[in-house]
Design a protein around this nucleic acid. Structure first.
Lengths: 105, 105
DNA sequence: GCTATGTGCAACTCTGGAGATGCATAAGGG
DNA sequence: CCCTTATGCATCTCCAGAGTTGCACATAGC
């Protein structure tokens, strides 16, 4: 997973309202209308956020009768976490190597 | 680490130019002026980005003579990764539990 | 001391995205 | 069959942030 692949995911996670939505969905599947009754934003705004979240694979739509419920998916989040951890460790490995060389003088 | 703490970090990571900066710094410490000679943006723009990155703890400034070099720090990234992974697993645990109940009927 | 170069600060433009509003459409429930 | 409710689409406003330019300041090197 490259930085170019990661950027859209981070853009999706950068919005507070989207975290509110994800947190709410973490309690159970819900439709845009249902979320709008809880969160202080309009249904249309939530629908847009859900589209963004679906785009990066964080949620998936489920048709239940005439409503569309959304479900959170943890897999993409875990995959992103793994990529982030790897990058962070790489940076710190470099610093450790430099420090080791410095001490070796 | 809560969602409120995570959001600024993701906002910092959502920008492509900042990833370019982080990648460049991953190769070795550098000043804003040095980075400006490599990347297709002005020094001031890079300085702003570095300020953002420093704010979330991804880089730290190092005065070397009259220039200010920046160094990437992996710790915050790894901590963020751990938080993300935990959240992702929580979501999937919930789904697994639901599925189990459904099959138990 | 003078000059080069590296930084810092301030103001400006401009685009993307978040949010709202209005309307059209579709599908349950009585 | 009608009404209610959920969704979809288009348009508008507004603001944060990315980027630039210009200038002032500080400091290493000669």
């Amino acid at each position: 997973m490259s930085a170019a692949t990661l950027a859209p995911m981070f853009a999706a996670l950068a919005d507070e309202t989207r975290w509110s939505i994800l947190t709410a969905l973490g309690e159970g599947d819900a439709s845009a209308s249902a979320l709008a009754q809880t969160l202080p934003v309009s249904r249309q705004a939530i629908a847009k956020h859900l589209a963004v979240l679906q785009e990066v694979g964080l949620v998936e739509p489920l048709r239940v009768g005439r409503e569309v419920r959304f479900r959170v998916i943890g897999a993409e989040l875990s995959a992103t976490a793994a990529a982030l951890d790897e990058i962070g460790r790489t940076w710190d490995r470099r610093l450790a190597a430099i420090k080791e060389i410095a001490e070796g003088l």
